[in-house]
Nucleic acid binder design. Structure first.
Lengths: 203, 203
DNA sequence: GTCTATAACGTGATAGAC
DNA sequence: GTCTATCACGTTATAGAC
């Protein structure tokens, strides 16, 4: 492993592009070789098989996907409001760099939940987070109406992630182009915390 | 075409089950035949090809998916608040009957957006809806803070649909079982309208 | 390390008997 | 209409020359 443009790295980057866009089953190793401008045989030389190459890509994606949440939810220095702001900001920035990552992850996890999720300690990372603890305290103090933190998490992640998943549909509905879509996502970094705070306390 | 348990119908139902779960590319015609308890050759006898069978399934799914929104968004008898309530109620009920339909549609649309969406007049149905008209009026009257109806639609649909898409992850995080998950979704039929109304008017 | 050629396999589809 | 047997093809993976 030397420069970023080594053959091995080129194949990995190409694999990321194609797998993200089409998923494991619809991807042909030829697509990856073409995207990487390498000979097909080199793919197997470096990674043994399509499956092994895919495993590397999906684990890296899952790790970054979960870590981006984890870091925020377990930050001892921030309160709940700050966590909402940080999550919206960091997560939207993260996804804007790789807009296809949410759909990629969610569809591949669907195809293979137990296999993929046991590779990462998702449960410990999220369920025992400082975020959940702070949520519980806020509920006890009457600052939050809905006591179930799962609703809170679904709402927050839904507001952040859903537009990226629904992007193809949304672009068809309003024939939106990608630059305009990205602008909407930039707006949401500021809007989502406002909305979520309004949702928190209802009569 | 006679009873619902005719061979043809059995194959279609099996195809729906398998395609919903695995998507087009990962599905083998043998999987469908097995699920339907029929001989593999019968699939081609009735539907000519895997692609033709798939087209039937996806168009049916898309039609129902869009129609469920369309009916609500174009109802002249209801105001904006009532549309929010109706959408949460109808859509969650609809998806609870076929929980895999959102992921199925979103991933297949990703693979083939132009081809699939030109088959349905999604744009006219949504973009020119009474819902958007009522939203515009409410903005002019100062009843809604955020003027862009796309944000409104993304939020509403995200709150409704996202939990179903993220279900495998959520179940891993809190090792939730399906009955408990469904209970959460029932709760959301009432909670989402409350949340959305709170989001609408912010300072 | 990289290439060409090809083997090995899985899958969609059909021929033809019943 | 339904079955068994098989073809035809595309794709993954490897052998072997360079």
């Amino acid at each position: 492993m030397q420069s970023d443009s080594s053959t091995e790295e080129r194949i990995k980057e190409a694999a990321r592009v194609v797998f993200y866009k089409k998923g494991f089953a619809a991807t042909r190793t030829r697509d990856i070789a073409e995207e990487a401008n390498i000979n097909l045989a080199l793919l197997n030389y470096y990674f043994r098989s399509k499956q092994k190459l895919f495993d590397i890509i999906i684990v890296e994606a899952l790790t970054r996907f979960v870590k981006t949440i984890k870091v925020v939810l377990n930050d001892k220095e921030t309160n709940l409001e700050q966590k909402i702001e940080a999550l919206a900001r960091n997560y939207i920035d993260f996804i804007l760099e790789e807009p296809e990552i949410p759909t990629f992850i969610l569809t591949e996890v669907r195809n293979n939940p137990e296999e993929l999720l046991k590779k990462l300690p998702v449960r410990e990372i999220i369920a025992n987070s400082i975020f959940f603890e702070q949520h519980r305290e806020a509920v006890e103090l009457g600052k939050i109406t809905e006591p179930n933190p799962l609703h809170f998490l679904m709402n927050l992640l839904g507001l952040i992630i859903f537009p990226f998943i629904a992007k193809p549909m949304l672009m068809a509905i309003n024939d939106l182009k990608t630059p305009e879509f990205n602008l909407l996502m930039q707006e949401r970094k500021k809007l989502i915390p406002i909305w979520v705070k309004a949702m928190i306390k209802t009569e």
